[in-house]
Write a protein that binds this DNA or RNA. Structure first.
Lengths: 208, 208, 208, 208
DNA sequence: AATGAATGAGGATTCATTCAT
DNA sequence: AATGAATGAATCCTCATTCAT
């Protein structure tokens, strides 16, 4: 005679559990960084025992790497790139920057954790740091593509320079916002930055 | 036969010990951040037992705060501001930026640790984070003074904006250098940034 | 050749482990008090590593509180109250007192630790002290019930007074026994005390 | 040329320092017991460095023993025994008890710490425990003398019994007061106890 | 798919004590 | 008479991880 298990948690559901773990971990890692994110704290926050976390993730490093990936996706989803028809190229750039700024205000965890990982120089590099560099490189390439489209005359080293400068400004402004709080109008600063970079591109010599 | 006492440390010297501890801690904290800086590792690096560290510093928080302060001073000392006679204002700005870039390459610990602390949002704020914000504000004020001198027509909100943008660019470029290594020519990027901010200031409307 | 795993503990058994920890802790805490009961010593005595103790108890405070509870229960179980048919009320009181005295000689840990905790006035009250007060109040209520049954004419303040005096005498005699050892015949003293309190009750004015 | 030392603490004064240390230690030990009284806390409370405490006392054990002695003297000084002319013997006994009760309310540290030490059974007996037993024995002898004077017909074992019972009641009532606070009227309870013991003595058979 | 229990290593911090000055 | 500095051992507790079920 087969009895239905009466009291089993809601029918064990791996996907849902994984999601809960990641959600908890994103929040904590975004606040406290790699070392500050202990399995015990994540366990407490998501309600699953520590050993269950190890069922879903090989080890802490693996978890943090997954956190970076997930928070990157969450962030990407928050970036709604503007339609291509909207105004002059400059205006479109500015709108894009504003949009990115808004997404960083709404979902800052990805960049915050990523920058923390990026700044650390620990003996054995965490996988999460590698993942961050990878997704960042993806972002760089996309941005480079935009630059090449708008300024086809620029050579590769100029594109490279512009992208580096653009990303650096974004990171730095984000840090300002994180440090000084709402006093910093991230959207306005990103718009200013976009205009500046655009002007810089226009002023650059064409060709190789 | 009288044995020389084998290990009795040379006459107790508080100032020197404190210096040794800080020196070790700066290096470690600059690499591994707040949580990654364990007292045991600092103890091993400086050669004093952990309990001696607690003679000189109330707790880990106090130590890290002192680390921030000391590394800031070290860094400041490394910034050799250019003489006032050297060329046009723009040239002097560019030289100053290059100098700061060089100091960040030589003594990156201060800013690296500071940014790590700045990005953390832990429930109870570490004292080191507070100190970082304070010394940063000092730096901001100095920069604001330079801007006011060069562009007396600008109103305060414009000065504020310029300073924020200038610092953000510096931070962001530093992060690029930390992430991507020597591939990033920090001095050149800082010079470019200085020129850009200078141009931005010139283009700003005067008056309140 | 298959070696038996040398030390892998017999199948994990939480209930049994908890019991072992408590058993060790009762003994140690009963001898050395709160501060004298180090987790390391308990760990050594029960054979489980310190970290396992923290699986079963939130912290030391929690452990000591559980110790109080458990030793109270052990002690209660050792008190075999006399049948209700045995002789005059006075005789039954005396028999009860003798029984309690015997239980305190056999299982003194509860009261010894409890009194130590009760006497401490530390800034943050240990949970064990709270628990001790609670179980003691239970004991007081039981005793009050006995008094009310035997002397229905007494008003509440008289009952209260009698109970306080009775318990105080018990505690004080216990302390004598702990201080001066077997020279003190605890059973005889408790019997004397019972007779005294009984007489005191008889001599009290009835009514409110 | 002899310069007056300008800034030396008030002219080093051993007696005064010793007093300050003991005063701090009495309070702390009375609150937290033997183990809870750390040299560092005493040092913080009295304002002298820990090493100075070791100039005045051989070690912690020595300090605690001195604490017991000093708090005993303080307490004794607070006990103002009543003149011999005041009323009947019973009345004088009651007055004496009331006086002791008052002294215990005013200066409870001695008995509180003493009882804590008495209850502990640590492997190596602290000197303070020995001192407590000694001063207690002195108190017992005094009380025995009083009993012998008032009831010359009693034999030694009866005296012994009465003293034990009297002291036990006092200790127990003190514990009640410590546990339950001002709700317990220590003076009234001590008076009741005195009357009870007096009555007990009267009821005892004379002779050997 | 999940988890209760366990565990050794290491975390920060405090301990009583010593010693040169 | 006093103290700044130092120190090894011990404190409580958390860590990441494993494993039998």
């Amino acid at each position: 005679m087969t009895r239905a298990r009466p009291d089993r948690k809601q029918r064990a559901n791996g996907v849902e559990s994984r999601r809960r773990i990641l959600e908890a971990a994103v929040e904590i890692a975004g606040e406290r960084g790699y070392e500050g994110t202990s399995i015990a704290v994540v366990s407490a926050k998501c309600g699953l025992p520590a050993s269950s976390i190890y069922w879903h993730f090989k080890d802490k490093d693996d978890l943090i790497a997954a956190v970076i990936e997930r928070s990157f996706e969450t962030w990407l989803a928050a970036v709604v790139l503007p339609g291509e028809d909207a105004g002059t190229p400059l205006e479109r750039c500015v709108a894009m920057a504003a949009d990115i700024a808004r997404s960083l205000v709404d979902a800052p965890d990805f960049l915050r954790l990523g920058l923390m990982l990026a700044l650390e120089h620990r003996p054995v590099e965490p996988q999460g740091r590698v993942v961050f560099r990878e997704v960042r490189e993806v972002a760089r390439q996309r941005l480079a593509e935009v630059v090449r489209t708008l300024f086809p005359a620029l050579d590769e080293s100029a594109v490279h320079l512009l992208v580096t400068y653009a990303v650096a400004g974004g990171d730095g402004l984000f840090v300002q916002r994180e440090t000084r709080g709402e006093e910093v109008d991230l959207v306005a600063m990103f718009e200013l930055h976009a205009r500046t970079v655009y002007g810089m591109a226009e002023g650059m010599p064409a060709g190789g």
